[in-house]
Each structure stands twice: as structure tokens, then as C-alpha cells.
């Protein structure tokens, strides 16, 4: 057999971290596709962190990026189980379908699932109308996340954030260091050269790790398609009752979101990005399958987080939230 065509020892296996500059430089006869290259990098990061840190955890938000990250974690340690638990920060405003999906996924892959809620704030009736979105997010997401990480003494938390999502996320390192209060200092980040990651932290400090840093929204959907990864049904177009306000379609999950006398209408729509139901708008769409979504993505002219109210509550909104400890 011609070794240039098939040579088991030179074939880049999924376990080999590949970081190359320029076109994928791989042994003769083997060429990694763009997605395989991204996959290999992400798996390398997952393994690095799992071996370097005492108590890693994966932040599982139930969305498409989390679903991809979870599959990568399965692959990284297969046939062993995922060597860290999943942590979901539940604000109490997540879509019911998301919670059902979350429990099903955790059960089906045998992962340990932890859920953390800021109970005092939820009991006090915190919501984005009573407070503003900034303070609501601060209590139900950021504070809950920081408390949850501290409660379990996690020192490294994987998140599914991607650099192409938002311009302050484009400034993130893959290993993102947080001081003892969980805050991010974007002006004081460590250099990250090739595939070398410096995981040294002082007592009390933690890191957030973003294995999907280099993935784009298109890569995520292509991977979901090729790998057949289950995602929440809310991503697919269906007739759903919505409050229609001009271009904005607001899910009817929470009654306090209705204006006086406002009646929901049935609209064929889907969610492009999943967050808390009061702050996540749907888009009109006919995309019922993943190929439909990929086709729709090509035609999109607005960004995936355009429907997230919390990104637009002030100038530099995401950056401020991130500095405070949001992921």
C-alpha cells in the first residue's frame, strides 16, 4: 500500500492537538477539514484544563454552543466518562423546553448535572421589568454564577462563548483569568502563544476557559449537522404564540411581560439564540431543519445576539457584564 495514501502511524488521529499556521499542515495523504481542525483544537483545550486544574466544571447553558461543547467533551475523554460535572445557572426564566431538554441530555449521557439558582433573588421576585435588565442579569446570572463556582470551589469553568459573537468577546483569551472576586481585567491578559496555555493561578483566582473561541455560528451549525447533535426544539421554526411588537416577537412564557390588554398571536418563528424568556426575541422563520437553518444563516444580515435585550442596555454592555464576572 502506498504510504502516501494510507499510513496509520502518520494519520492525524483525533487525539493529536493540531495547531498550525497557514493551511492545515498534516502528514501526506491526510488533510483535516476546517471543522476537524477546530474540533482537534477544542479537544486539546478540554484535555489540558482537565489535567491541569483541581476542580474543573463545564457551564452548560443548554444552547447550541453548549451542545457542541458537551459533544467535544464526550469525544475528548471517550470511552471514559466526562471527568467533570456540568453546571447550569438557572435564572428561573429559562424556557420550559430548555429545562426538560437539559435533564434528558444529562441522563442520556450519564453526566453529573448541578443546578445553581440565586434563590434569595428569585424569591424576592427579581425580574427585568421590576429592576432593569442590567440589575436583573447581575443578580440572576452573574451573582448566581460566582456563588455557584465558589460554593463548589471550582477553579476552572468551561464556557461555550465564541469570539465571533460579540466584539468584547473577540478580545478574550482561551484561558481567561479572573481575580478572587471573579472579575475580568481585559487590559491585563496573558499572552497565549500557539497551543501553549499558562494555567498557573494564585489561591482564590479562577479561570474561565472557552474551547469554542475560534468557532463561528456557521461552524457550530455545520458541526451539529455533521455530528447529528440534538438541540432544543426552540431553534426550529414552528407556529408559536408570541406577543408581536413591530419587528420584535416576544415569547409568552412570562405573564408579566404582556402589555395591558395585549393578546398573543400565532407566528411561525424560531429562536436563533437562547437566553431568558423575557429578554430573548424570536425571529420569523421557516427553517424547520438544520439544513434550513444553515441556508437561512447565509442570508442573515443581523447578528445572532441582536435579539438579546441584555446586549443593548448600555454602550459596551457585554464588556461591563464580563468585567463583573458574567461569562
Amino acid at each position: 500500500m502506498n504510504p502516501a495514501i494510507y499510513n496509520p502511524s502518520s494519520t492525524v488521529s483525533r487525539s493529536t492537538p493540531t495547531m498550525t499556521f497557514g493551511a492545515a499542515r498534516t502528514p501526506a495523504g491526510c488533510r483535516l477539514s476546517h471543522l476537524q481542525l477546530l474540533e482537534a483544537q477544542s479537544i486539546h483545550i478540554l484535555r489540558e484544563v482537565a489535567s491541569e486544574f483541581e476542580r474543573p466544571v463545564m457551564l452548560y447553558s443548554i444552547g447550541k454552543d453548549s451542545s457542541v461543547m458537551l459533544r467535544l467533551a464526550q469525544k475528548a475523554f471517550y470511552p471514559g466518562p466526562i471527568p467533570f460535572p456540568l453546571l447550569h445557572i438557572d435564572t428561573g426564566f429559562k424556557f420550559r423546553e430548555m429545562l426538560t431538554f437539559r435533564d434528558e441530555v444529562a441522563r442520556s449521557i450519564g453526566a453529573e448535572l448541578l443546578v445553581w439558582r440565586n434563590e434569595p433573588a428569585i424569591r424576592a421576585g427579581t425580574n427585568p421589568i421590576k429592576l432593569d435588565t442590567k440589575r436583573c442579569c447581575g443578580l440572576l446570572k452573574t451573582q448566581a454564577l460566582l456563588d455557584g463556582l465558589r460554593h463548589y470551589s471550582f477553579d476552572a469553568a468551561f464556557g461555550g462563548a465564541r469570539r465571533d459573537e460579540e466584539k468584547s468577546r473577540a478580545k478574550e483569551r482561551i484561558y481567561s483569568f479572573r481575580d478572587s472576586t471573579g472579575q475580568w481585567d481585559p487590559k491585563n491578559q496573558r499572552p497565549e502563544l500557539w497551543n501553549l496555555y499558562n494555567g498557573r493561578i494564585h489561591p482564590g483566582e479562577t479561570i474561565r476557559v472557552f474551547p469554542l473561541s475560534n468557532w463561528t455560528e456557521m461552524d457550530v451549525w455545520q458541526y451539529i449537522h455533521e455530528e447529528n447533535i440534538p438541540v432544543v426544539d426552540l431553534y426550529f421554526a414552528k407556529e408559536r404564540p408570541m406577543y408581536v411588537r413591530g419587528d420584535v416577537l416576544l415569547p409568552i412564557e412570562q405573564e408579566f411581560m404582556a402589555l395591558p390588554g395585549e393578546k398573543p398571536q400565532m407566528v411561525k418563528c424560531r429562536l436563533r439564540s437562547l437566553g431568558c424568556s423575557p429578554c430573548t426575541g424570536a425571529i420569523r422563520s421557516n427553517a424547520e431543519t438544520i439544513p434550513d437553518i444553515i441556508a437561512e444563516l447565509i442570508s442573515f444580515r443581523s447578528s445572532e445576539r441582536a435579539n438579546r435585550v441584555i446586549d443593548h442596555d448600555q454602550e459596551g454592555s457585554m464588556e461591563i457584564k464580563k468585567r463583573e464576572g458574567y461569562f
Binding site: R163, D164, S168, A170, K187, S213, E315, G316
Partner: peptide
């Protein structure tokens, strides 16, 4: 992508774009 960068009109830290 950082507020300080937009205010000062300079790039302070590396950004990766796609």
C-alpha cells in the same frame, strides 16, 4: 471591542476576528 479602545481611538489588546 473594548470601551477604552473606542474612547482613545487605539487598539490596546489583540482581537481575533473571523
Amino acid at each position: 471591542g473594548l470601551r477604552a479602545e473606542r474612547e482613545q481611538g487605539i487598539t490596546i489588546d489583540v482581537a481575533c476576528r473571523y
